[in-house]
Design a binder for these strands. Structure first.
Lengths: 247, 247
DNA sequence: ATGTGTGAACTATTTCACAGCC
DNA sequence: GGCTGTGAAATAGTTCACACAT
C-alpha cells in the first residue's frame, strides 16, 4: 500500500500528468527542428501541427510547465527548448548501460539519439563469449560478469535490457540490486521490479498486434479478400492459431 | 471533420476500448506462457499477476470480448488464447515489409516474434546499393525501387519503416499510395498520413526521456549528487543544452 | 487583432465492491 | 466458498470556448 501517494501531486508546477510527460519529448524534437531552420517564435497552432497533436492539447500541456508563452505572439523557440529540457531532466547527463548485444543491442549502441540528448552509454555487456571483446560503435563489449562493476564505477542510472526473453528478469534483478532505478526493456516479458523502480517497455510484437487489430476492422482481410459480408463469423469453426515460442 | 465517428462504437461487443486493445497482446503472451507449462485454467488473479496488471482491470478488459470465464473457476487457457487471437486478428496472416535495413532493420528482420504471431515478412528493402543484395535472416534485400511491386505482389498491409529520419516521410507517402493502411514507424519523426491510415511509433529516444523525467524526481541527480536542497533553481542561470541533430 | 492560459464540459479509463453463478 | 462479470464511483485525460494580456 506504500508509494501510492507519489506521482501526481497538487496543481500546476509539480505533478505533471503522465500523458503530458510522454508528449514533451515530441514537442522538444519539433522545436529543435524549428531551431535548426532558424525559426525564433512559434504559435501553439504551428508547433502542434509539427508535433502531430491539436493546439488545445499543446497549450494545456505547456501550461503545466508554467507560462512560457506570450499572448498574441506565441512561444520563443529557444526558451521553450530549454524549459522542456530542464523539465525532462535533460540538462544533466544520464549514464546508460546496454545489456545484450545481439542485433537489437547493436542497433541501440549505434543509435545517434543517445548522445544527442545527454544519454551517455557507459557499457555494452553480453554473456556470449563470441561477442565479448568485439568493438561496436566505438566501444568494446564487456562480459556480463562485470555488470555490477560497470554500474558502480560509471554511476549508471538507466539500464537498457536487450537480451533474449529468458535472460531478462535475471539481468533486471541484478541491475536493480546494483542500484539502477530505471529500466528500458526490449525483451518480450513482463519484468517484476520493487517499488520505486521504473520500467518502460518497447515491444515490436505488441505494436504489430495492435496494428493488426485495427487493420482487421478496415473492410476485409489483409488482401481485401474474405469477410465482405457484415458478420464476424461464428466462433468455433476456425482452427486455433498460436503454436510457437517467444524470443 | 470526417471520420471522427469511427473507433469506439456502442457498448460491449464491438468497440473495444483502445487501452484494452493495447493490453490484449500482453495477456496473450502470458497465456501462451502458461500453455507451454501445461496450465489448463487460470484465475483472473493469476493471469493478471503474470501480465503485470491488477485483476479488476483484467476482468473488465476480458469482459469487452465476451463472457469467456467460468464463475468460481476461472478461464480456460486454450479457449482464451483463441478468443484473444481472433479479436486481435491473429487468426489470419498479415504481410509485412521492412523498409530500411540498417542495424535496426536487421534486428527487426531477425526478430522471432514476427513469424510466431502470424506476421510474414514479404520483403526487406533499402536504398543503399551496398546493402541491396545482401542476405539477411534468410531473405535477400531488395532495392527500394521495387517497393510498389512488392506491396502489390505480396499484398503487404503493414509497412515497418526503419529508415533514417529524413527518408521516413517519403517512404511513408509511397507505401500509403501503394495501398498500405498500417505503418509501424521507428524513425524519429512525426509521420503525416491521410485519414484511415494507422501509424504507431516506436521511439527509443522518447522512452529514455520519459525515464529521465521520473529518474530526476527520485531524490538527487544521476549519481546522487546535486540538487539536494529543496528548490528547483531559477531559470536563466544554466547553460542551454541541445545542440545536435536527429538521425 | 491575435494567440495564450485556463476554467468548465466532456470523454476515457481505472478501481471499487458486490450480486450472481458455479 | 470462490471467482467472474459488471454497474457505479473515482480518477485521468481531452476538447471547448473565451477572458485577458500583449
Amino acid at each position: 500500500m506504500t508509494s501510492r501517494q507519489n506521482r501526481q501531486r497538487d496543481r500546476a508546477g509539480r505533478g505533471i500528468p503522465e500523458a503530458t510527460v510522454a508528449r514533451l519529448p515530441v514537442y522538444l524534437r519539433a522545436l529543435t527542428g524549428l531551431q535548426e531552420r532558424g525559426v525564433a517564435t512559434v504559435s501553439s497552432e504551428e508547433l502542434a501541427a509539427a508535433a502531430g497533436v491539436n493546439s488545445a492539447k499543446l497549450r494545456k500541456d505547456l501550461s503545466h510547465l508554467g507560462s512560457y508563452g506570450t499572448r498574441g505572439v506565441g512561444y520563443e523557440v529557444e526558451y521553450l527548448v530549454y524549459q522542456i529540457s530542464r523539465e525532462l531532466g535533460l540538462t544533466q547527463d544520464w549514464v546508460v548501460a546496454i545489456i545484450g548485444v545481439g542485433n537489437l543491442g547493436r542497433a541501440l549502441a549505434g543509435y545517434g539519439g543517445f548522445a544527442s540528448r545527454g544519454f551517455r552509454v557507459a557499457g555494452l555487456l553480453d554473456a556470449d563469449d563470441s561477442i565479448v571483446g568485439q568493438d561496436i560503435a566505438g566501444m568494446t563489449v564487456g562480459h556480463i560478469d562485470r555488470l555490477e562493476d560497470i554500474i558502480a564505477d560509471h554511476g549508471v542510472s538507466i539500464a537498457v535490457i536487450a537480451t533474449p526473453a529468458g535472460a531478462a528478469q535475471g539481468v533486471c534483478d541484478r541491475v536493480v540490486a546494483a542500484g539502477v532505478t530505471s529500466v528500458l526493456n526490449f525483451a518480450p516479458v513482463v519484468l517484476t521490479v520493487p517499488d520505486g523502480v521504473d520500467v518502460r517497455k518497447v515491444d515490436l510484437s505488441i505494436e504489430l498486434q495492435i496494428l493488426a487489430f485495427h487493420e482487421q476492422r478496415k473492410a476485409g482481410g489483409p488482401d481485401g479478400l474474405a469477410s465482405l459480408a457484415g458478420g464476424d463469423g461464428p466462433p468455433g469453426t476456425k482452427q486455433y492459431v498460436e503454436t510457437v515460442v517467444e524470443a
